[in-house]
Simulated assay, not measured.
Amino acid sequence: MSQLLSSTPRGARLARLLAVQQLDRWGWPPAGAAGESVALVVAELASNAITHGRVPGRDFRLTLTLEATDTLRVDVADSRGERLPLAGAITPAEESGRGLLLIDALTDRWGVEPRPPSGKTVWAYLTLR
């Protein structure tokens, strides 16, 4: 599933709702631990995309890929490639970036890759249980 969404709070909310609906279609109920974790991860990554990756007039893209029977890849791509979050660089004492601690706690691994010509994709893998 891949969807282009507006870089607005409404777009971030819609990303979370679409992710939970897609997970339900794949057999993972929204009220379960997997659904709740995916909702939180997508909400945080989408929020970061509209807060730190927004370029006026450009949208962000949410892509969900079920890579194995129990492994989900979440990709959130935005248009600001010069602002790259660094995995492991955030501590609880930091004033910003704490959402990445949540991503660290809920995912098996996550990272960032450039998306030429000027964007980035933040990706995360979650084992669905």
Rank of each mutant, 00 (worst) to 15 (best):
T63K: 09
G88R: 12
H52A: 02
V76F: 00
A12E: 02
E36C: 04
G88I: 12
V42T: 07
R109D: 14
T127E: 13
D59F: 02
T69S: 15
E94M: 15
S6C: 06
G99N: 11
G27T: 07
A15P: 04
A87D: 03
A34F: 04
A15L: 02
I90W: 06
L23E: 10
L128T: 14
A19E: 07
R61E: 14
T8C: 00
L64F: 14
V76L: 01
A68N: 15
V122D: 00
L40V: 13
L40W: 05
D70G: 11
G53L: 06
R80Y: 13
G35K: 06
T63D: 03
L45Y: 11
R115E: 13
P29C: 10
P85K: 11
R83Y: 12
H52T: 12
V20D: 00
D104V: 10
L40M: 13
A39I: 07
W28F: 15
E67W: 04
E82A: 14
L40R: 12
L18P: 04
Q21N: 12
R115V: 13
L45P: 00
T121Q: 05
Q21F: 07
L100V: 08
E94T: 07
I90N: 04
I50K: 03
G57K: 08
G32K: 05
V76Y: 01
A46T: 14
E95C: 07
N48S: 12
A77R: 15
T63H: 14
G99Y: 04
R16V: 02
A93I: 09
L100K: 09
L40N: 10
P30I: 05
V20H: 00
A93P: 04
S6P: 07
G53V: 08
T91K: 13
D104L: 11
D59Q: 13
D78F: 03
E113C: 03
A49G: 08
D59C: 10
L101V: 01
A87M: 09
